[in-house]
Lab assay of single mutants.
Amino acid sequence: SSCPGKSSWPHLVGVGGSVAKAIIERQNPNVKAVILEEGTPVTKDFRCNRVRIWVNKRGLVVSPPRIG
């Protein structure tokens, strides 16, 4: 992607959502990480300053967080 800084975090799958949020925002200060339960409807727009963290009912990351 053409967004500045780190853009994906595949190693965070299985980690707690709040831990993942802290790591992502520390590694790329340009983004705001948002924790969402899988299945939550979201907009389809692409934004360089957003990372969606998809978690299951136990709050664990279920897919690699990435910019968008």
Rank of each mutant, 00 (worst) to 15 (best):
S1D: 12
S1T: 14
S1G: 14
S1L: 07
S1I: 14
S2H: 15
S2N: 15
C3F: 15
P4G: 13
P4N: 11
P4K: 06
P4Y: 07
G5D: 14
G5S: 14
G5Q: 15
K6W: 12
S7V: 14
S7E: 14
S7K: 12
S7L: 12
S7M: 13
S8G: 08
S8C: 15
S8Y: 12
S8V: 15
S8P: 08
W9T: 03
W9Y: 09
W9G: 02
P10G: 06
P10H: 02
P10Y: 05
P10V: 06
H11I: 04
H11M: 09
H11E: 14
H11A: 12
H11L: 09
L12V: 06
L12K: 02
L12C: 06
L12W: 04
V13N: 01
V13G: 07
V13C: 06
V13R: 01
G14C: 03
G14P: 01
G14S: 01
V15N: 04
V15E: 07
V15I: 13
V15Y: 11
V15H: 11
V15D: 04
G16K: 10
G16H: 13
G16M: 14
G16S: 13
V19K: 11
V19P: 01
A20S: 02
A20D: 00
K21N: 04
K21D: 00
K21H: 01
K21C: 04
K21V: 04
A22F: 09
A22E: 14
I23S: 04
I23P: 00
I23R: 03
I23Y: 10
I24M: 00
I24N: 00
I24R: 02
I24A: 03
I24H: 01
E25T: 03
E25V: 03
E25R: 03
R26V: 07
R26I: 06
Q27W: 06
Q27Y: 09
Q27F: 07
Q27N: 13
Q27I: 06
N28A: 07
N28E: 07
N28I: 07
N28P: 00
N28C: 11
N28L: 09
P29V: 06
P29D: 07
P29C: 05
P29T: 09
N30M: 14
N30G: 15
N30Y: 09
N30P: 03
N30F: 11
N30R: 11
V31D: 00
V31C: 08
V31I: 14
V31E: 00
V31Q: 05
V31G: 03
K32G: 04
K32S: 09
K32R: 10
K32C: 08
K32P: 02
K32H: 06
A33N: 03
A33H: 01
A33P: 04
A33M: 00
V34A: 07
V34G: 01
V34T: 10
V34F: 06
I35S: 00
I35N: 11
I35R: 00
I35L: 07
L36N: 04
L36W: 03
L36G: 03
E37L: 12
E37K: 09
E37T: 12
E37A: 09
E38L: 08
E38Y: 07
E38I: 14
E38V: 11
G39K: 06
G39A: 04
G39Y: 02
G39H: 05
G39V: 01
G39I: 03
G39F: 04
G39R: 03
T40K: 08
T40G: 04
T40Q: 10
T40N: 04
P41Q: 13
P41V: 13
P41Y: 06
P41H: 09
P41G: 07
P41I: 11
P41R: 12
V42C: 08
T43N: 09
T43R: 09
T43E: 14
T43G: 11
T43A: 13
T43M: 10
T43P: 13
K44S: 12
K44I: 07
K44M: 08
K44N: 08
K44R: 11
K44G: 12
K44D: 12
D45M: 06
D45H: 09
F46P: 07
F46N: 10
F46A: 09
F46S: 10
F46T: 10
F46I: 09
R47E: 15
R47I: 09
C48I: 09
N49K: 04
N49T: 10
N49D: 15
N49H: 06
N49E: 10
R50E: 15
R50D: 14
R50V: 15
R50S: 13
R50H: 12
V51Q: 04
V51K: 00
R52H: 10
R52F: 12
I53T: 02
I53W: 02
I53P: 01
W54S: 04
W54T: 05
W54L: 06
W54Q: 05
V55G: 01
V55C: 07
V55I: 09
V55T: 07
N56K: 03
N56D: 11
N56M: 03
N56L: 01
N56F: 00
N56E: 04
K57M: 03
K57R: 10
K57G: 06
R58L: 12
R58S: 13
R58G: 11
G59A: 02
G59N: 03
G59Y: 01
G59P: 00
L60D: 10
L60K: 08
L60I: 13
L60T: 10
L60H: 06
V61C: 09
V61A: 02
V62I: 10
V62N: 07
V62P: 00
V62E: 02
V62M: 09
V62K: 07
S63G: 06
S63E: 14
P64M: 04
P64Q: 05
P64A: 09
P64S: 06
P65I: 00
P65W: 01
P65C: 03
P65N: 00
R66M: 11
R66P: 06
I67N: 07
I67W: 05
I67F: 06
I67C: 15
G68W: 06
G68K: 02
